[in-house]
Nucleic acid binder design. Structure first.
Lengths: 194, 194
DNA sequence: ATCGTATCCGGAGTCGGATTCATTTTAGGT
DNA sequence: ACCTAAAATGAATCCGACTCCGGATACGAT
């Protein structure tokens, strides 16, 4: 992501700096709840003018998407690692909880997942596939080990999780998220010799 | 809802007619996918001017919310009826599926549930409580009959369902919705002498 | 150190869409 | 038929995303 495609010239140093600053500022703004922060504000708090923001990002949306995409990238690294360290069942359980934790940090991740789920935007297509693959990995391992029911696909589970993460609305949602996660987890194992 | 509070004067006949027409037009617009239909369009297709729309609804948002609220009202009538007709377990199962069916009709219901879940808007507070109560009813009956695990509250299940309904994005989501519903259903029964 | 140029600044201006309000019309009681 | 409060109208206003352009500046290749 950071490395430019072979054909493209690398960004000039100051340009890159600004781009980074913008992403940071946007992240800041979004994660701290202000989902509808104004473009001008973001630009200002990044120390640049709006024009500069638009030099780097097609639209306000594009900026938001980029922020979310980065969040998702991070999360998608987890499954492979978890599977190395733990048995399939435990890996799955941990990943589900990890999701909740991430969502807890800020609204960022939950909004990210929600957006990824709820829009058909091709921009999110990559992220969606990425997440689905990560989940498929976990599910397959679980099925192979006989601790997870067959017939649930990565994309399906992704949808269910996307829903769960969309619940950042009220106080005390975190506990509920855990409950629902447990519910899903048990649902996945239903009919299996647990 | 329809009956004015004792203190308020009843709406003039034409006013009520217009209000109704606006709600109908809005419903039409939203249910047929056009979530971002313009205020002017809605007004025009209801045969009134924008000003009239604003006489009846504080903001565009308020109109949308009203439409969704009515949808939810309908759905909330179901649990009581289902419990009369079926055993708790079956009633629960049917209600979950009913949700999917409703969402299938148009995007209306799914958007409704999603919105109700995702915003902290006090306007949805009523609807949220209403739905939660409906679910609590089902869960309690299930727990009493020993077919549902204890410890899951109405609001919690509501959140999980809200998530499920938010998945109207892609083709073939309906099948997935069923899968997830089954997942949840089984999760609810986990650890029970099914 | 110097030059060519990519990038930035700043903000005025466009545009689309939601919201308002002074004016006109109408329902419905007398 | 007439009167008045309620309701409707729609042009005007507001707001925020997005564009554009004429300098000013910072890079980095030489």
């Amino acid at each position: 992501m950071e490395v430019p495609l072979s054909s493209a010239r690398p960004l000039r140093a100051d340009a890159r700096r600004n781009r980074e600053a913008l992403l940071a500022a946007a992240r800041e703004a979004f994660l701290s709840g202000d989902t509808d922060s104004h473009v001008e504000e973001i630009a200002r708090s990044a120390g640049v003018a709006v024009g500069t923001l638009y030099r780097h990002f097609e639209t306000r949306e594009a900026l938001i998407e980029e922020v979310y995409r980065k969040e998702v990238d991070e999360l998608c690294a987890a499954p492979a690692e978890l599977l190395e360290r733990h048995a399939p069942e435990e890996a799955l359980r941990r990943f589900l909880l990890l999701l909740v934790e991430h969502a807890a940090v800020g609204k960022g991740m939950s909004v990210a997942l929600e957006s990824i789920m709820a829009t058909a935007s091709p921009v999110f297509e990559t992220a969606r596939t990425q997440m689905a693959n990560a989940l498929t990995q976990l599910l397959d391992a679980g099925v192979a080990a006989g601790v997870v029911r067959d017939g649930i696909t990565g994309p399906t589970l992704l949808r269910a999780l996307g829903g769960i993460c969309g619940m950042r609305a009220t106080e005390g949602w975190q506990g509920e998220a855990r409950q629902i996660t447990a519910l899903l987890f048990d649902g996945l194992r239903y009919g299996t010799a647990s």
